[in-house]
Design a binder for these strands. Structure first.
Lengths: 200, 200
DNA sequence: TTCCTTGACATACATTCTGTATGTTTGTTA
DNA sequence: TAACAAACATACAGAATGTATGTCAAGGAA
């Protein structure tokens, strides 16, 4: 079994990330020890600290990979929608589909914000799935809507979606949340002129 | 300095909780060591493990106390409002006031969900500030609105409020978030008949 | 008051984990 | 094939957690 160096590197990197991902999901980041990770990955701690600066860097790599997968999954699902509100609803559905992967909610919505900080996690989020939501809201509310307002609304709706994803992962009825989101979005679409008229 | 036993107990419990709260806010739960806590509290680790089962139990006690303070602060602020939507907006403002206390967002919205789990934190939340929001939404949407829908909307709005509190604590403009919330609530108030008509 | 029990700690210890420093093997290049 | 570098493995130092044991003051009972 003579493998080239890049092949070896990527293989152990993936083995470490996969093993750590499972353990982080099952026991959480804090309660997962590096000896457990390397045992599950079939390597030693030396390999871990050769490829990753520390335990947090390993989590960061996993979170980034997972966030990219979510964004990719949403992009694949994205089809033409008739109205901006329908586009937002389809985006939400795609997000719930993507977050349905077991453990993803825990990794992306619980562990990452606490360990890596809210700022770092928000940056990862905004670089991927978050931007989809903001463009959707701009479509819905018109390009002349106040930018700060849109940013704030994007953040809060994103948090609401995350909350819904967590609830669904915990066994809640997905259709109830999707309808609740539909009502929120319809309310936004119907009311935005009121805010704009106050500002302009 | 002859103190009775109950006095001694409460004094050291409070000293430990206060010292740990400051350190958890400044450095986070994971990066705060029990020797640091007891040094700041002026006791030994023996006292800590006599009063609290482990480090997590200490965090739990602090989080519960802080959540009760938030609920109390909101209850004190609650004055008569003319409309259900105004009541909700005042409640949101009171929540932001209460969360304005330095470090509270980190403790209640970042550390607690990750360390104690989303379920435990949600239970603490629902027992305190969360119920205020749900009753306000029932007022807004009418008592005949679908209960599951109200519960889901409560959860998501609660998450949106938390997100706003975090953003404000991070330096964002509070008035922008309050206006965004106002638009969301007005949208809900104007649209709820649509959902109800589908269900009944 | 005296004795005895219990709660409230303090101290010492065993285990375990993290990160680093050093050693060894394997691939790569000149 | 000789030299070098990357990819690991092993050994170690420091520190942290939780526990077990020891000590001392508080508080009733005789």
């Amino acid at each position: 079994m003579a493998r080239s160096n890049p092949e070896r590197s990527q293989a152990t990197r993936l083995a470490l990330m996969d093993a750590a991902k499972d353990l982080f999901i099952k026991k959480g980041f804090a309660d997962t020890a590096t000896p457990d990770i390397v045992r599950a990955a079939g390597v030693t701690r030396g390999a871990l600290y050769h490829h990753f600066e520390d335990k947090k860097a390993l989590l960061t790599a996993i979170v980034e990979r997972e966030a990219e997968a979510v964004a990719q999954q949403i992009a694949d699902m994205s089809v033409r929608a008739k109205s901006p509100s329908e586009a937002l609803l389809r985006g939400a559905a795609a997000y719930f589909d993507a977050m349905n992967t077991p453990g993803r909610t825990r990794l992306l919505l619980l562990e990452a914000p606490a360990i890596l900080g809210a700022a770092a996690t928000g940056a990862i989020d905004r670089g991927n799935a978050g931007s989809t939501l903001e463009t959707g809201l701009i479509e819905l509310l018109g390009p002349d809507a106040n930018r700060d307002w849109i940013a704030a609304t994007t953040n809060m709706l994103s948090a609401a979606f995350d909350c819904a994803a967590l609830a669904i992962a915990g066994g809640a009825d997905r259709s109830v949340y999707e309808r609740s989101i539909a009502v929120l979005i319809d309310g936004l679409a119907g009311q935005n002129w009121q805010y704009r008229s106050k500002r302009e």
